[in-house]
């Protein structure tokens, strides 16, 4: 098995009313900063660094957008799951 190229990802929908706004992006970034390697957020063909609030904001994810959260580092799966959960809960708003 070639472990390096394996890729862990989950798709999740933005459910909160205002979409992925600054405060929500800040919550994601705070989690993503705990990862060893970069966690990516993918929307359509755009890919951004989840540890940068600004990068996340530039995706312009409104309510109902599907995003994919991905990493190629197995030990960051917990962080990835935390982010997915945060999005699913609608950022606790």
């Amino acid at each position: 098995m070639n472990k390096e190229h394996s890729n862990f990802s989950k798709s999740v929908m933005i459910t909160n009313e205002l979409g992925l706004h600054a405060r929500a992006a800040a919550k994601i970034a705070r989690l993503a900063m705990q990862a060893e390697k970069i966690i990516w957020i993918i929307k359509d063909d755009e890919k951004v660094d989840a540890s940068s609030i600004i990068d996340i904001l530039t995706l312009g994810c409104s309510k109902g957008t599907m995003i994919k959260i991905t990493t190629d580092n197995e030990s960051d799966i917990d962080v990835l799951n935390d982010i997915v959960m945060l999005v699913e809960k609608g950022f606790g708003e």
């Binding site: 600054a22 800040a26 970034a29 705070r30 660094d49 540890s51 940068s52 609030i53 600004i54 990068d55």
Partner: peptide, 8 residues
């Protein structure tokens, strides 16, 4: 948090 954002 934005002040220290890597993009900025």
């Amino acid at each position: 948090a934005l002040l220290k954002d890597k993009m900025l």
